[in-house]
Design a binder for these strands. Structure first.
Lengths: 195, 195
DNA sequence: CTTAAATTTGAATAGTGGTTCAATATTCAT
DNA sequence: ATGAATATTGAACCACTATTCAAATTTAAG
């Protein structure tokens, strides 16, 4: 019997990230993804049920990886809450620095996907966010963070802010250094704009 | 000769906001917008060139209004930079509190539209953002805000954070009070999470 | 009342692109 | 070498929907 040549599943995902980053989900045509992945149009459907499952798979990969890493940080008692918060920011930044197209897909498509398919979106995202919330709660309990901060609102604010910065960077990577954005984010998250 | 009955232009915009909020731009079908606006499908096209112009008109209205109001605040020398920053947050919140559907359209569609049609998006948004940036610069100049804050990054961060919170609220308005979100945002923008 | 100009209608059109599937190709076990 | 099982192909299909336009309607002026 015939055996699958190479890792087409991965090739399709990678091509999809590129094409979706460039054209958005609706602008990303299956035949274009297939072309870039080096497979026939029909082959896509022997690896993924339909177009939607492709982008679900993309986000599943992303948040599975990020959640796994954050989990390790969160459980490490030798790291302070402040450092854990910074580590969270670092994790997201490191991933998206490595893959600019992925950053664009994240910034542009995730919210819409969650709106349209709240129950089918990867559960790892919610887990990641929940772990972030736990980190903030620890910081409040240990007297480092301001107890009047609402952790639920903070998590939306922080994720929104990160997303806004990553998007701006991905659209114009030469505009300003990613290292600076990262430092600024840490500053703003910790101390806000005040002196 | 025949005369136009009622304000169909406005009815179409309002219907479009509702339908797009519920289904997203691509999920919003013209015939559905027409139905809700109480006009025939074809009538849409005697008021707007095509579907895209409808959503452009929505954002043009939004940012024209917000920019006009922020401009007044910015030019008022009797208001401190801190108060101006809070006024900016208030302006955005007031508008979206009044119109939850608009909040959803803003949170879900704006970024994608800017990506796809950067040159055709309403110029009032950029003006609004620029004015916000000016307010921060004033705060730094007058020694209230931290001079190591990069205003360009801050504006992306703040808008992203606002967007993230508004979206969360619009998706589940009963979840938590808008007044609390607003206060939290001011706290986080000013002082961050630290005590 | 009649006519002309403009608006409104909604069925028909046309283009698009996700998905299917019959044909072909490849691999492995015997 | 042969055949069975599986993978791959890509042209054709078909559902969907933005847009068009000829006909119907409405209003105002003469």
């Amino acid at each position: 019997m015939r055996v699958r040549e190479g890792n087409k599943e991965k090739a399709i995902i990678e091509a999809a990230v590129k094409v979706i980053a460039e054209n958005g989900y609706y602008g990303a045509k299956i035949h274009k993804i297939a072309e870039l992945a080096g497979v026939a149009t029909g082959s896509i459907y022997s690896y993924y049920e339909n177009k939607l499952q492709i982008i679900f798979a993309i986000f599943d990969n992303v948040w599975k990886e990020l959640y796994g890493k954050l989990e390790l940080v969160e459980q490490d008692a030798s790291i302070s809450p402040s450092q854990k918060l910074e580590a969270l920011i670092d994790l997201v930044f490191n991933l998206f620095t490595e893959n600019q197209d992925l950053a664009l897909v994240f910034a542009h498509e995730q919210n819409v996907l969650i709106r349209d398919y709240p129950d089918r979106f990867t559960p790892y995202f919610e887990k990641f966010i929940q772990t972030g919330q736990d980190i903030i709660s620890q910081g409040i309990a240990s007297g480092v963070f301001n107890p009047s901060v609402n952790v639920f609102i903070l998590r939306k604010y922080l994720m929104g802010g990160i997303s806004g910065c990553i998007q701006a960077w991905a659209l114009d990577p030469a505009g300003y250094s990613l290292a600076e954005i990262r430092d600024q984010l840490k500053l703003l998250a910790h101390k806000g704009v005040n002196l």
